[in-house]
């Protein structure tokens, strides 16, 4: 009885400290930056001021283009049907499968690790390893929201040249893995 009563208590306190640190954890960089700015302000007030001014400019800059990008991400996520994709990238899908893997990869939203479960599902359901890897690397390197950001900050020569070089590299990596790296679906 006694152990039963103390156990939930200890679990509860553990959970509450966990949620507190979990809630603060994403802000570690922000808190560190504030601390550094305060320290800088003590010794070099003018430098701290120019640092805050630069940050303010970037904050404004980001707030004006991040909302539409996130809306586009959400829409793409909702409207691109995943079951359809899983059916069309299997062995024998050829260039159509590659094109599809690239298309869905570029239309994706979210970080690369969000792609792992979906790509693994595609693989388990019969997608070619080459297509799975092409899909992953497309998601990683050349998704459309990312290209728009790159175009904005680096300009067309940098962004488009990088795109033109990355696209064949992604396809080549897919085929190199398919042909030279031993793999089996049973691994997952």
């Amino acid at each position: 009885m006694i152990t039963k009563q103390t156990k939930p208590d200890s679990v509860q306190t553990k959970e509450s400290t966990n949620t507190l640190s979990q809630r603060l954890k994403p802000y570690w960089l922000f808190l560190a930056v504030i601390l550094l700015n305060l320290l800088l302000g003590l010794f070099q007030p003018s430098l701290a001021l120019s640092s805050l001014k630069t940050s303010r400019d970037y904050l404004w800059e980001m707030l004006t283009f991040i909302p539409p990008i996130f809306i586009l991400m959400g829409l793409l996520d909702v409207w691109v049907p995943r079951e359809l994709v899983e059916k069309h990238v299997g062995p024998g899908s050829g260039w159509r499968g590659i094109a599809l893997a690239i298309f869905v990869g570029t239309a994706a939203a979210g970080p690369l690790y969000a792609a792992f479960p979906l790509a693994a599902t595609l693989w388990r359901k019969g997608a070619k390893v080459a297509n799975v890897m092409i899909f992953l690397n497309t998601w990683a390197a050349i998704k459309i929201p990312m290209i728009t950001v790159e175009l904005k900050y680096f300009g067309p020569p940098f962004a488009l040249l990088r795109l033109a070089l990355t696209l064949p590299a992604v396809i080549l990596i897919g085929f190199l893995i398919e042909h030279y790296v031993p793999h089996s679906r049973e691994m997952t």
Binding site: Y27, L29, F30, V33, N37, T54, S55, M62, I66
Partner: peptide, 12 residues
């Protein structure tokens, strides 16, 4: 949260 941190970091 991360965005705010990075924005601060860019300034610094």
């Amino acid at each position: 949260p991360m965005m705010l941190g990075i924005i601060g970091l860019i300034g610094l």
